[in-house]
Design a protein around this nucleic acid. Structure first.
Length: 288
DNA sequence: AAGAGGCCCTGATAGC
DNA sequence: TGCTATCAGGGCCTCT
């Protein structure tokens, strides 16, 4: 489930391949995604050149030379696969690209063809989407619904204090609310709260200044570390190759229910509870 | 205004 | 073995 670190990894590898390449073909196999892909998607991006690939929160943005933008959200199960063209016989051969060497047989929704390879978007659960934005203004308008991402310079103690201290809802849901902090999903919310020593059920307005400071520092630190480790590879990416992310090995609480709390001198087990229909893992002893 | 809850979707897994 | 139920969860929507 790509959160900020996973989208960042996808961005880096995709950019190396497709930046300054021209789109010479588009094949849409299945328009049914989170939002139905517009019928004119193919013709609108055909023959355009990619001039930048970047990330904002959990969104990937492909900027084209006619000043339009492809906005991509991976939802729960969206992945890209790179297929290289073999010179001799003009066939395509599947090469590793981010999560998987093995091209799934089903759910290959969109193919984008370049000179020597094609990129395939696969999404079994269809929670992801592609959206075309006609100009920068519309793109920014769309993205402005999101709050600051943790790597933003403006994401500091005062920003968090201002956005947390008056809220009655629990801190975990505050972290997951993209209008307040963007880019954090369920996995990293669990990890950040554990390392900050905060009970995920605790209402925002009950947090003290030290806890808010912890959230500021540790959000940046954990997301950064996850990017360095190549993101987290779980569940949907389980058939992945050696290029899979390694951060799942660093999980302290996520999916660690009934295991010993990793903190020294703590003999509690990690507890699994449900908050707003999301699995939540924490240590009752270390998180208050 | 803010928060709670429902919904979309498929594949893996648990239980009988 | 084969069936059914449950779970995974991001973002948008509606209702209060």
């Amino acid at each position: 489930m790509p959160e900020l670190p996973e989208v960042e990894i996808i961005k880096r590898s995709l950019k190396k391949k497709i930046n300054f390449q021209r789109i010479i073909g588009v094949k849409v196999n299945n328009r049914n995604l989170r939002f139905k892909l517009k019928k004119n998607f193919s013709e609108k991006i055909l023959n355009k050149k990619v001039v930048n690939v970047y990330r904002k929160a959990k969104y990937l943005i492909i900027s084209l030379d006619n000043k339009t933008f492809i906005l991509i959200h991976f939802g729960m199960s969206g992945t890209f696969h790179l297929i290289k063209k073999r010179e001799k016989d003009n066939l395509f051969t599947n090469l590793s690209f981010y999560q998987s060497r093995n091209l799934p047989k089903k759910h290959n929704h969109i193919e984008i063809h370049f000179k020597n390879f094609k990129v395939i978007y696969n999404d079994p659960r269809r929670f992801g989407f592609f959206k075309l934005l006609d100009n920068k203004k519309n793109l920014e308008k769309y993205l402005s619904k999101n709050g600051l991402e943790p790597f933003s310079k403006k994401f500091n103690f005062n920003y968090l204090l201002k956005n947390i201290c008056f809220r009655s809802k629990n801190i975990k849901n505050i972290l997951l609310d993209q209008r307040i902090v963007s880019g954090i999903g369920n996995i990293y919310a669990n990890e950040i709260l554990f390392r900050s020593g905060i009970d995920p059920n605790k209402p925002g307005n009950k947090l003290n200044k030290k806890e808010i400071k912890n959230l500021e520092i540790l959000s940046k630190k954990i997301l950064n570390k996850a990017i360095l480790k190549g993101g987290s590879t779980i569940r949907d990416f389980k058939h992945s190759d050696g290029k899979a992310g390694k951060f799942q090995n660093e999980f302290k609480v996520y999916s660690q229910d009934n295991k010993n709390c990793p903190n020294l001198n703590c003999n509690y087990k990690i507890t699994k509870i449900n908050i707003s229909n999301r699995s939540t893992f924490y240590c009752k002893n270390c998180q208050k």
